[in-house]
Write a protein that binds this DNA or RNA. Sequence first.
DNA 1: ATATTTGCAAAGCCTTTGCAGGGGA
DNA 2: TCCCCTGCAAAGGCTTTGCAAATAT
Lengths: 131, 131
Amino acid sequence: MQNIEQMLVEHGVRPTIHRIHIARYILGEADHPTADEVLDWANQNLSKISRATVYNTLRELTQAGLIREFRFPQVSRTVYDKNTENHFHFYDQASDSFMDLNADSVKVDIQLPPSFKVNCVDILVSGNCSQ
Amino acid sequence: MQNIEQMLVEHGVRPTIHRIHIARYILGEADHPTADEVLDWANQNLSKISRATVYNTLRELTQAGLIREFRFPQVSRTVYDKNTENHFHFYDQASDSFMDLNADSVKVDIQLPPSFKVNCVDILVSGNCSQ
DNA sequence: ATATTTGCAAAGCCTTTGCAGGGGA
DNA sequence: TCCCCTGCAAAGGCTTTGCAAATAT
């Protein structure tokens, strides 16, 4: 992965220490973490950090387009995704975790009256993957 | 619409007065109401009713299969739907309201590894309909 | 008599906000 | 200096829960 600090700057985000670490975590090892998981991780691996800062940072990074925010029908929490491409998700009910489905693997054809203008399509496939 | 009381009984729900009224409202005039809308409606049209009873009733009716519960990525509240068939939703961002898309108007083809078992697919199409 | 339903208030979960203090440009 | 960032605690939106009182079987 390229230099995180530089990425932040390129996206117009001031690279504070917290932002760098959180960005590195989400863009790297984390897999669809929630705000709470980010907080826990930060508290274990960095100095103590406040909940508000985590939420602020996640909002910053999302607005900057570095990560994406997803909320799902089945699950109350918001998750953050390093994948900013157009894609969908598979929710594994057994492990309570999410996987990306890239846009190519999902074909959707929606018939709508011509007056309907579509801005986005959210798809969540739920089930089990016995990997 | 057929007799509501009878429908409740057939679905194993004791037909209390609140349940009958709420079921009639959701199965009839209401359009994807939230718990709060049901509460407001009940307080205007019935005797006062508590929030807990509304939530309890909505849970009962949902579990009985008389209505369905939907939660969407874009919107925090849960909505209740008289349509219990397999279907998807269109979210009109301008009016902040939902419309049903019947399953026929949405074709989805999802390529998954064979070990994946799909239980359900949630789709929300967001945009504007200038009707 | 017994089980169910209801109302109320409190708590819970997740997220946002207000404000004061601290640190970097 | 000045502005932005951070932390803390409080509040906010929505939903659930605990418990006692009312109601139905």
